[in-house]
């Protein structure tokens, strides 16, 4: 197992595996994250995102493989890593009985620093929650909690920031704000690893890794992943959506079909024309049929990749 000691590498993993009693959480995972990058780990619940984060933040030990964070080994130099990373767990993990300000002060003390010292770094985020600084952390709204947790994770100016599903359970407006903050942090030179189950957040990362069942399907920039889709994609629509999905799935010429919100995204065999499909659907009694070409998104790529993974 070779770890390339490159000064530009913030996080590197080589052949990481982890299993719990019955579940194989991570299978031979390898990847690298460059300094100053926003690296998104995107996958459904139970894909292994949290396990991976916990291994990198030295909270749990991997069964196999090695990993380094900021050049430090996660097993041997775990104490060094704990000094230079910021970690925001998926579950809100601040002291609910303490006020906003007390929480921040507490974590500043824990990390041997003070709020003043790194106030610039958290200023943009903290000013938004400052009006509530005497409120108890447990009484904050979801978005506020995330902002406070992020402030606490940043208080010691970490080199690498690990955010485990920071936007889960947060309203769309706050989510957008949150990603704006991450962009600002990137400008400060902080490497950010962020996991999320939301595919639409993928395009906001510099590079993403699509993860499922403990292994990466692909790791690339969002643009490259979308470009790699390589097929035409149609969105099909009809009055009876449930029937449409079953009918499309029973059609041998439809290569894939997934329900996406109010439409079914489909790919077709090479020589199969949409006119044919429309005709066949009309025969089956569908009305109001529309089939139009669309640009594939990350989610389409994920579906396609996870499908090819299975077979």
């Amino acid at each position: 197992m070779n770890i390339i000691h490159n000064n530009n590498i913030a996080v590197s993993c080589a052949g990481i595996s982890k299993h719990y009693k019955k579940v194989q959480a991570l299978k031979n995972v390898s990847f690298e994250v460059s300094k100053g990058e926003i690296f998104g780990i995107i996958g459904p619940d139970g894909a292994g995102k949290t396990s991976l984060f916990r291994i990198l933040t030295t909270l749990i030990l991997a069964d196999n493989g090695t990993a380094t964070v900021n050049g430090f080994d996660v097993v041997k130099n775990y104490k060094n890593i704990r000094e230079c990373v910021g970690y925001m767990p998926g579950k809100f993990s601040l002291y609910q009985d303490l006020t906003v300000e007390e929480n921040l002060e507490f974590f500043a003390t824990v990390f041997n620093t003070s709020i003043k010292e790194n106030y610039d770094l958290i200023k943009d985020i903290y000013v938004q929650i400052e009006p509530f600084k005497t409120r108890r952390a447990g009484k904050l709204s979801g978005g506020m909690k995330q902002k406070l947790a992020l402030s606490c994770a940043l208080i010691h100016k970490p080199a690498v920031l690990f955010l485990d599903e920071p936007t889960t359970g947060v309203d769309p407006v706050s989510r957008k704000e949150f990603w704006g903050m991450l962009k600002n942090l990137k400008k400060q030179g902080i490497t950010i690893l962020v996991s999320t189950p939301y595919m639409d957040e993928a395009s906001l990362c510099d590079r993403i890794g699509l993860i499922q069942n403990g292994s990466f399907l692909t790791i690339d920039t969002p643009e490259e992943i979308i470009a790699g889709f390589g097929q035409r994609l149609w969105a099909a629509h009809s009055k009876n959506m449930n029937k449409l999905l079953t009918d499309l799935r029973s059609n041998a010429d439809v290569k894939s079909s997934f329900a996406f919100g109010d439409a079914v995204h489909i790919t077709l065999n090479e020589d199969y024309k949409t006119e044919q499909l429309r005709h066949e659907l009309e025969v089956k009694g569908h009305t109001g049929i529309s089939i139009r070409t669309i640009k594939p998104g990350i989610e389409d790529c994920f579906m396609e990749l996870s499908k090819s993974e299975k077979y």
Binding site: T57, T58, R82, Y87, S93, L94, F107, V110, F111, C152
Partner: peptide
């Protein structure tokens, strides 16, 4: 149980 241990562990304490 509260999860605060997770953060405390990932600190130089």
């Amino acid at each position: 149980e509260m999860g605060t241990m997770e953060i405390l562990l990932v600190s130089p304490m």
